[in-house]
Amino acid sequence: MKGRERLLSILSPLLLIAAWELTVRLGLVDGRFIAAPSLILVALWNMSVSGELARDVGVSLWRIAAGFAIGVVPAVLLGLWMGLSRSVRAVFDPLIAAVYPIPKIAILPLLMVFFGIGESSKIAVVAISAFFPVVINTYTGVANVDRVYLDVAQSFGASRALVFRRVVFPGALPVIFAGIRLALGVCLIVIVSAEFVAARSGIGFLIWSSWEMLLIDKMFVGLLVIAVIGTLLTIGLREIQRRAIPWRNE
């Protein structure tokens, strides 16, 4: 039964691709707008050989990595501080609540005023997008560490530093990680959107410019690549999480 289910779940996408190829070949859909899978593969090959694909992927990954690092690290630090101190939370909570609902891509023009049209504005928009889910999850995680664990630590006379290092931080870590996973998803959306409108390189630019020039096969390569990147980053993050939080059996 298990073998049969596995077979079915391998067959179903293959069948879909075959049906797709067939409908394009038979002219049931307009080949100018929907590229056949075989043509997408050919374009993927050509773009890999020419180095075009590597360049765009590299640029996007760099923007995500730099922006993510710049956004996540201060978010965790501020979140911890807010979780530990009510007054700090009282200061930052309304600010965060006010800015959080704004779709971050909407402030891209503003960021371009500050950072120019170069790399900095793209990295900044990724950083800001990553910042909010992480800061919110971090202070929620810290504030929601089960009371009984704090009682235990206090009853054994643990110092504040030890309580933080051994109780509060590890207690909040699963929630912090959930925030980081959320941030990663948001960052992918934001970088592609930013590259659509305000970049001359990157996967978003590849997709958008290919569409404008009706190079549909190349556009589909862009979609394929962004899907693969998203999947790989999620798997990588899950692996990091598994090592950082070995007490969670998910």
Binding site: V152, G157, P170
Partner: peptide
């Protein structure tokens, strides 16, 4: 304590030694 109050993020030996660590 009443409920399960041992820390989920520590191993058995780390948990049992927490009072000494403190």
């Amino acid at each position: 304590f009443q409920e399960t109050s041992i820390f989920p993020w520590m191993t058995v030996i780390e948990n049992a030694a927490f009072g000494l660590e403190a």
